[in-house]
Amino acid sequence: MKVKFDRIIAKGYLWLLLLVLYTPIIIIAIFSFTETKVLGNWTGFSLNLYKNIFVGDASGSMLSAIKNTLIIAIIAAIVSTVLGSFSAIGIYNLKNRHRKAITFLNSIPMINPDIITGISLFLLFVWLGVSQGYTTVILAHISFCTPYVVLSVMPRLTGMNQNIYEAALDLGATPFQALTKVIIPEIKPGIVSGFILSFTLSIDDFAVSLFTKGNIGLETLSTYIYSDARKGGLTPELRALSTLVFVVVLALLLVINLRAERQAKREQERAAVLKIKK
């Protein structure tokens, strides 16, 4: 009896917490389907806020913010994935001491709060005298995304049978063939996760973009939302936009997690098969 009571309390606590965590987001989502300026005041169902993102008065600046965010995220994710995957292979083959050193450097951007990353890169660009804009934001995003790619590729390398690579070389493959035919297929799941992770991180970033975007009027989604919210009161269209962003990020996360789960399952099956063969 006592255990059962405990369970009700425990479950209740979890659900209460979840309710608090999600209520605000749900409110925004609900009120994105009505045109009211003041929240909490339902003025009838309408999809106009969504339509206004594309054709309304503010749609020009909103669409360009969306476009910038996507372009930056795609370029940053591609470059980070290539750079991170190659480096992971390199780091994996390094001697212990060098490996530790570079792993430490790799962890700095992950520990540093955004504002420090942003400020330090801002100072770098000021020091170098480069004018800030698209290029600087993309470089900054690459610098904080790549560590995560390295981190998601590394376990695949550690879990891989090292002899296959050597075997490929012994059988006459060039190092390049051994890379494309052996290593890359083995670590591919890590590379894909790294890519999606970078893409999500880049879309989600606010602080680093704010410090490196310069003053040529470049806005990403989050800096746009920020400057709008600062003026006091939120443009109603931003409720629709936030909901869209939330849904996209949610979908990406589901994909990442389902992939990870499926992989774990497949690996278990593979291990089981190997056991039977033995």
Binding site: L83, G84, F86, S87, I89, G90, I91, Y92, N93, L94, K95, I102, L105, N106, I108, P109, I116, I119, S120, L121, L123, L124, W127, L139, A140, I142, S143, T146, V150, P175
Partner: peptide
């Protein structure tokens, strides 16, 4: 063609975009 050297570009990248910027905070 030595795999361990593939980390070199990223090492340079880290020096330029992580270590140097942090040092610049001190510098400024």
């Amino acid at each position: 063609s030595k795999r361990s050297s593939w980390s070199l570009p990223y090492f340079i990248f880290l020096l330029l975009f992580v270590v140097l910027p942090l040092l610049l905070i001190v510098f400024y």
